[in-house]
Design a protein around this nucleic acid. Structure first.
Lengths: 147, 147
DNA sequence: ACACTAAATGGCACTTTTTGACCTATATAG
DNA sequence: CTATATAGGTCAAAAAGTGCCATTTAGTGT
């Protein structure tokens, strides 16, 4: 399971070091590949190949003509790329994904279980500040889920 | 599986480079041919020969008198063309398909599993902006799919 | 606090991919 | 039969991606 968060720097060419804790997760699955796709917010989702297969399995069962299905396919499948780690444990984040998530210099890799997310640092802070500013309603939503 | 998206430029003659990741998919099937047809939106669908056969199989099961079926047949089967890649990995997109999808300069090749789609860049952005502008309901749909 | 090890980053050289350009072959219309 | 347009091949420049080495930074144990 991916957990914890790490601030790393992406360079001009778009290469980003993957936190070593996350690299260990990949090593367990005996792979040096990550699948990166657009998230629902302005961030990227990074899966191990096995994790991604589960996503693909779900997606491949969808209709190829129904609107909601095809929109989701386009957003997720249509943005997913396999990225190989280089000798230094870095990946090249494809330019289009870089600009989608607004990655400039400081990035945050945030583990959320089966995947981790790649955020622009400031975007993440802003998003979470906003999401947590109404603790009462957050509490309520969580309570409904049995927490 | 075709996945990821790539922005390429179509030239005045209508030649378009196929992203190398997609060319690899074709190489697996030991072919240098794509089948291109009109999509349901203003985009083109591109299949590997094997992928296209599955489409043909499905289509041949459709009624030849029911309106929706015959319209679909005319639209898809009636527009499909085989395109060979040249030495640089490009295809010539037939003029009629070019104008259907409004391909001018910047095009987007979007992998969606068994096929990839060829869009005018701006048309794609407009379509997806519209489709994703209600994130709440999208989230709901996705949650129902177990995502 | 210090030395030691591992991780992250920057830089450079090299390869692959994309794209524009030019040139030839084939077809079409006058 | 000639002029024009389209299709298709090939070359080469430009842009993007990749591998490797070296330096800096951070983490760990003594």
């Amino acid at each position: 399971m991916f957990k914890g968060h790490y601030e790393n720097t992406i360079n001009e060419k778009g290469r980003l070091s993957i936190p070593s804790r996350f690299r260990e997760m990949l090593k367990l699955g005996d792979t040096d590949t990550l699948v990166i796709a657009k998230g629902l917010e302005k961030c990227l989702w990074a899966y191990s190949p096995e994790g991604w297969e589960k996503v693909e399995k779900k997606v491949s069962g969808l209709s190829s003509v129904r609107m909601a299905d095809i929109v989701y396919k386009r957003h997720v499948m249509g943005s997913a790329e396999e990225c190989q780690l280089d000798g230094q444990g870095r990946i090249l984040v494809p330019a289009s994904l870089r600009s989608y998530a607004n990655l400039k210099r400081k990035c945050l890799c945030v583990g959320v279980g089966d995947r981790f997310e790649i955020w622009d640092r400031e975007a993440y802070d802003a998003f979470m500040d906003d999401a947590m500013k109404d603790p009462a309603s957050l509490r309520k939503d969580l309570a409904e889920m049995g927490l």
